[in-house]
Every structure is written in structure tokens, then in C-alpha cells.
């Protein structure tokens, strides 16, 4: 995996939101890499910038208020941020697609399913297909997501579908074009737990079958443990730790990751953990140095002034925390 060229490479991405009365410095240098065929998870609490990162990667970040201040997003080595709309449209929808969190909101309420499928498939096929072929592809896409009676479903409006069906339709649309990379933004979070599990299993099987790379954004650690190869932990606009999933679960290094893992209720008992005290910082005045230092129980002097770089502790396991810096290796233990 390591010797393959990365499919998507986000380098030092910095995104701000200009809002009334100030600037929200949301993304503060995000680094994230996805290799072909790989499944990557991105976890972090609500508001940490997961969705902003992914919307920027697809160039669907609303600008204004969003502003990309710095960084690069390389898709197969080409910088998406520097692409013309025309070049971008060759990537978006054809090679890279996205599933949104809330299937109730992600489907247009005033068009039926087929009316929403058609332009997506047409664009992916570069308008080379006849209407009949497009229709056949849409039927196929709905069969992919295990929806019965696709012909009837194509004529249905979102209001006529249940939440689970809508999410399946969204997944079907996002994979109908056979993209190489799928960004799934908390799929199923808006659904009830059993449906959510079904939908995720379906999604997982489907990307396995199609060999699609996926970035799975979630705040459910249970979900990522079962599905993804590598896991990124995000805090307040920074990637604080990345490691192969099992390793991150067995040996979380960053105090924030440790807190996250600790917050998962365990069957073995021990009561409900305290989690991490405090909240995500105010993005208009983020803390200097490490953005986590205000909530960190291991805070050191340097954390208050200087942003920690990434330290590679083991191959593939990186953490942005001075506890693991060369100078502090001893002090940490």
C-alpha cells in the first residue's frame, strides 16, 4: 500500500470562514492521504472540521463564507484547488463523489428519484449514453443498494421513501458512476440504529465489491473499527493522530485519542467514563500552540506556544503531540 501513489493527498489544508464580526480559523493545516482501494476513517467530535475538509476536497465548500487560506489537495497528483471548473467537473461525480449525512436533506424534495439520477449519470457518461441506457444504469444502481422494484422507485419522490430507502438511494447515486473515491459523511447518523447498521454494512460490501476507496467520516468509533483500514483522529481543525485502525484502538497515543477511546462505554463494565472535559475551542480565537492544550491533562509549557508537528512513532503511526517528540520522549513516560 505504501509504495502505491496516493489517490488523494490533502496537504496542510487551511480553511477559514469569514463571518459577521470575525474570521473562524477552522482548518489549521490538515494532512490526510488515501491510497487506491483503501478505506480510511476520520473521527472527531462535532464541529472539528471533518465535513469542511471533505467539502473543500470536492470543491463544494460555500465560498463565501469559506476561504481556502492555504494548502493543497492533490487528486492523482493534480491540485484540485488550482483546477478550472471544467477540469474539476471531470473529477467530481466521475471519479470522486460524496454521500451526505442526512438523507432527508440530501435528496431534492421536488424531483423524483429518476430526475435526480439522470443528470448525475449523464455527466459521468459524458453525455454519450442514450436515455434508455441511462435509465438502465439507474435501475442497476438501485439494485446495487438492494432496493426492490427499482422501476417504481425511480418514479417516487423522496417524501414517499423511508429514511433507510433514501439513504440507499443516496448511496446508489454516489456509486452509480463507479467513482474511485467515495466520501461518506456520517452515513446513517440521521437514521435509527438498526437501519444505520444495515446501511453501513451495505455500503461496506458495495465499496469492497467495486474496489472503491472510501473516506468514512463518523463520530461512531464502533463503525470505524469494523470497516476502515486506517484511522485519522481530528481535533479542532487538526489531524492529531493517524494509525492503522487496530493499532489506534489498542494503543492511542494522543491525549485526545485516548480520551475518545475512553469515552466508548465498555461491556466489561467500569462505569461510564468521564470523557474529555471542556468543549471544542472558539474558532475565532483558537488557543495558541496546540489547540488541545486547554483540555489536555498532560499539558506542557511548549504546548501553549508552539503547534506540535507530526511525530512518526512507528511506521504509519503519526501523532501531533510533544509528548512523543524526541526531546520529550522520556518525560512522557
Amino acid at each position: 500500500m505504501v509504495n502505491k501513489a496516493p489517490l488523494l493527498e490533502i496537504k496542510n489544508l487551511r480553511v477559514h470562514y469569514k463571518v459577521y464580526g470575525g474570521v473562524l480559523k477552522v482548518l489549521d493545516g490538515v494532512n490526510l492521504t488515501v491510497y487506491p482501494g483503501e478505506k480510511v476513517g476520520l473521527v472527531g467530535e462535532t464541529g472539528c472540521g471533518k465535513t469542511t475538509t471533505m467539502k473543500t476536497a470536492l470543491a463544494i465548500l460555500p465560498v463565501p463564507p469559506g476561504v481556502v487560506v492555504g494548502g493543497e489537495i492533490l487528486y492523482k497528483g493534480r491540485n484540485l484547488l488550482a483546477m478550472s471548473p471544467r477540469q474539476l467537473s471531470n473529477v467530481r461525480g466521475r471519479e470522486m463523489t460524496m454521500i451526505f449525512q442526512d438523507p432527508m436533506a440530501a435528496l431534492n424534495p421536488v424531483f423524483n428519484v429518476e430526475q435526480q439520477f439522470t443528470p448525475v449519470l449523464k455527466h459521468a457518461a459524458k453525455n454519450h449514453l442514450s436515455n434508455k441506457e441511462i435509465h438502465a444504469q439507474a435501475v442497476l444502481a438501485l439494485q446495487d443498494v438492494a432496493l426492490a422494484d427499482p422501476e417504481r422507485l425511480l418514479q417516487a419522490y423522496p417524501i414517499q421513501l423511508s429514511g433507510g430507502m433514501r439513504q440507499r438511494v443516496c448511496i446508489g447515486m454516489a456509486l452509480a458512476t463507479r467513482p474511485q473515491l467515495l466520501i461518506a459523511d456520517e452515513p446513517g447518523t440521521a437514521l435509527d440504529v438498526t437501519i444505520q447498521a444495515q446501511v453501513l454494512r451495505l455500503l461496506n460490501n458495495l465499496v469492497d465489491r467495486l474496489n472503491t476507496s472510501i473516506i468514512l467520516i463518523t463520530h461512531s468509533l464502533g463503525v470505524v473499527y469494523e470497516t476502515v483500514d486506517r484511522l485519522y483522529v481530528m481535533y479542532a481543525g487538526n489531524i492529531v493522530e493517524v494509525a492503522p485502525t487496530r493499532k489506534l484502538f489498542s494503543n492511542p497515543l494522543h491525549p485526545y485519542s485516548q480520551g475518545l477511546m475512553d469515552a466508548v462505554p465498555k461491556l466489561s463494565g467500569g462505569g461510564i467514563s468521564q470523557g474529555i472535559s471542556g468543549r471544542i475551542p472558539d474558532y475565532s480565537h483558537p488557543p495558541a500552540g496546540c489547540r488541545f492544550h486547554t483540555r489536555c491533562s498532560h499539558v506542557m509549557e511548549i504546548c501553549r506556544h508552539q503547534k506540535p508537528p507530526e511525530f512518526e512513532v512507528e511506521e504509519g503511526h503519526k501523532v501531533a503531540c510533544y509528548l512523543y517528540g524526541p526531546k520529550n520522549q522520556e518525560a512522557a513516560v
Partner: peptide, 16 residues
């Protein structure tokens, strides 16, 4: 314009 279905259509490649 701020609705998810617009972002979704764009993300799926529908032209502006």
C-alpha cells in the same frame, strides 16, 4: 442554496 441537496448535486458532478 445552502441545502444539502444542492451540495449533493454538485458533489455528484451535476453542472453548475
Amino acid at each position: 442554496l445552502t441545502k444539502d441537496y444542492i451540495a449533493s448535486a454538485r458533489a455528484l458532478g451535476v453542472s453548475e
